[in-house]
């Protein structure tokens, strides 16, 4: 078939702009400034272990909370009438049309201890004010805020495609609502959950804006900040930056592999 040749422009493009840059990352990670082979970049990483662990901790916490908050939203929307469903799907996506830096920056205005919107309201109501700016709590809040739609949408789309007959069948066979949910609906929505988990976890673990704006940088630095510093910051060192990127990539690949395995196990269990 001649049509195969239609993909040639893409293949050339992919080699130049996808594969070669990835090779650059690997090559930079294993070389020093004079491009001699070395493991030094990885030896330095011990120092940054706390940063890695903090990124991991905060992104896992946010991903789990996103799942807990997002699943019910996806579920409730999928039970609405089709017209209303469309409106709510659009409402879920619409915030993405305002630049995410600004939306995150807006949280500073909301959470600010002295002049923040939230504390102004709280003190007007004579309630105790809260002070969470520049803490890990604020970073988690920012992550949940930014990535929650990525959890809601895939879960919604799995639930809305679910065959009502399967649920009816379970009910006919004597299952109560709780059983129907845990034995039928939840297992069948695993693919959507997996997509949601990866769509939240990957940007959460690699972010550097949220930690910079809401976490105050410095002591609450994340992997993303570390990479950014090596490429555009004062610490310019693309070799170390590539080593960190490489570890981050391997890390994401492993966690996705684990989740996929979980997915197929679940599917096997239903069959």
């Amino acid at each position: 078939m001649k049509s195969k040749s239609l993909s040639i422009p893409f293949l050339i493009w992919a080699v130049i702009f996808i594969i070669i840059p990835m090779i650059f990352i690997i090559a930079f990670a294993f070389t020093d400034d004079n491009f001699n082979f070395t493991f030094d970049n990885f030896n330095h990483l011990n120092r940054y272990l706390p940063v890695f662990l903090r990124s991991l901790k905060l992104s896992i916490i946010s991903t789990v909370i996103c799942l807990a908050l997002g699943y019910p939203v996806g579920y409730i929307i999928s039970k609405m009438s089709p017209k209303v469903q469309n409106v709510f799907v659009l409402l879920t996506m619409l915030p993405m049309w305002m630049n995410f830096l600004l939306r995150t920056y807006s949280w500073i205005k909301i959470l600010n201890t002295e002049s923040g919107v939230l504390n102004t309201i709280l003190s007007a109501l004579n309630l105790p004010t809260i002070d969470i700016m520049d803490t890990q709590f604020a970073i988690v809040l920012g992550m949940i805020y930014n990535f929650l739609p990525f959890m809601i949408l895939p879960i919604y789309s799995v639930l809305t495609k679910m065959d009502e007959k399967v649920i009816e069948a379970a009910k006919d066979l004597g299952a109560n609502n709780v059983q129907v949910f845990f034995k039928v609906v939840l297992p069948l929505s695993v693919p959507g959950i997996i997509t949601g988990l990866t769509m939240v976890f990957v940007p959460a673990i690699s972010t550097f804006i949220i930690s910079k704006l809401l976490g105050g940088g410095g002591a609450n630095m994340l992997i993303g900040d570390l990479i950014d510093m090596q490429f555009l910051g004062n610490a310019y060192n693309p070799h170390l930056g590539s080593a960190i990127s490489l570890i981050l990539m391997v890390f994401i690949l492993i966690s996705m592999g684990v989740m996929r395995k979980f997915d197929s196990d679940e599917a096997g269990g239903i069959m």
Partner: peptide, 17 residues
């Protein structure tokens, strides 16, 4: 690769290129 990679890595890899 670009879909699953974090954007920051796609960005810096292209910068290196």
């Amino acid at each position: 690769i670009p879909v699953t990679n974090p954007d920051i890595i796609t960005g810096v890899s292209l910068m290196l290129l």
